[in-house]
Design a protein around this nucleic acid. Structure first.
Lengths: 218, 218
DNA sequence: CATCAACTTGACCTCTGGTCCAGTTAACTA
DNA sequence: TAGTTAACTGGACCAGAGGTCAAGTTGATG
């Protein structure tokens, strides 16, 4: 199923981790993948997410529509790939970067640092987030109970873990969803679009603070 | 624009409030409206939201597709009408019901009461909420900056107001979005679908509590 | 240079929301 | 009760999106 979503890409990861044989991704394929990603990025910057069709992306990338689907499996797959790319830096930072984002600082501070970083990243990519949402919603092959967005999943695991450490009595899983899920909120997205990301950051901060520091609520 | 969305329905409200002439809604029209609403309800109960097409609803209601669109303007309009219906009771309760849901109780308690009621209502209508989301996402006529769902708006205004009273220092608007918006969160919706609405209720409760009662966080 | 799997392509398919208008009918009036 | 009219009805029709596929092309490998 994921194989279907990512198509040939899967082979890459397998090969890289495995014994190390199997064909590499062909040069032209790699070139096209980049072209598609960049075209999508560009279009998303200029137009509303639901106005950008896969065919448009293909054309803008100088490629046939079939290629896009071969590469990314679906519209949603394309958006996902784009998200992974944009989120990579933050992912690395929380996994092994310097505190307070990375390991080392107390959970409480790491959560706050992460939320700030997340909002900053999101505010630079509202269109993409919305587009992914839209893509998933209009997906034709919604087989099985819809796998979660890997980026979301990673972020959620992270925050969830930290919350559990700071406040074992809370429903960490749920609270993490509440915090991170705010990005998928249309009114909140509008805020980001209007450049008011500061408000969201502050709001989440006060939420997290009063939640994680009992007695220090402020 | 709303006129377009609701079609002939608009006349009703105008007439009712106005001098009191103009044609009433025809009996057959009213009958069909109910039939459509009920058919949609039923289908939504049995199938996944994105598997219920307008045409299916029409057929199930024993009506032509055109009639559905004439009545509700769009798929989204249909879902909205359904939501309004389901939300009416709660709307009335918060506007003029007995405390703590209605006026009279301290803001802090009213928020908690409302959140509980909201979760209860939502858990009985997850399919509908999702369906509305889906409808808006796949809408073809997304003219203008997409009017907000009136139900959401009403709820938001309510909660926002209460928060502002209880904690004038907070960004009430934002926090209200954060709380209410949780329902539009796919993972959270899944929770409700799995019958774990209690967790959501508890989670929102602790969030609201620690936010609204500084020093009493817990 | 031969071989072949990966890649590319665009015509084509399916499905859905939404439109339209010719025909029907409920409701009001004389 | 008959007449008038505007609302209502229905289903053929349309546009446009995501997704498929078979036939042709090409980069990599020995």
């Amino acid at each position: 199923m994921w194989a279907l979503l990512y198509g040939p890409l899967v082979k890459l990861s397998i090969e890289r981790a495995g014994v190390g044989e199997q064909r590499r991704e062909r040069a032209d394929a790699a070139r096209n993948r980049r072209a598609i990603l960049e075209a999508a990025e560009e279009l998303l910057r200029r137009h509303r997410p639901d106005e950008v069709s896969v065919e448009q992306v293909a054309t803008a990338a100088g490629v046939g529509k079939g290629t896009v689907f071969h590469r990314f499996g679906s519209r949603a797959g394309l958006m996902l790939a784009l998200m992974e790319e944009r989120a990579q830096e933050l992912s690395e930072a929380i996994a092994a970067g310097p505190p307070p984002l990375g390991p080392g600082a107390p959970p409480h501070e790491r959560v706050l640092a992460f939320l700030d970083a997340m909002v900053a990243l999101a505010s630079r990519n509202v269109g993409l987030i919305t587009a992914h949402e839209h893509a998933v919603a209009t997906q034709r092959n919604a087989a099985g109970p819809r796998e979660a967005n890997p980026v979301y999943r990673r972020w959620h695991d992270h925050v969830s873990e930290l919350i559990a450490q700071a406040r074992p009595d809370l429903d960490a899983t749920l609270v993490a969803h509440l915090l991170i899920g705010s990005l998928h909120n249309e009114p909140v997205a509008r805020l980001l679009l209007d450049g008011e990301s500061g408000r969201l950051a502050a709001g989440l901060r006060s939420l997290a603070t009063s939640l994680l520091s009992p007695g220090t609520a402020r």
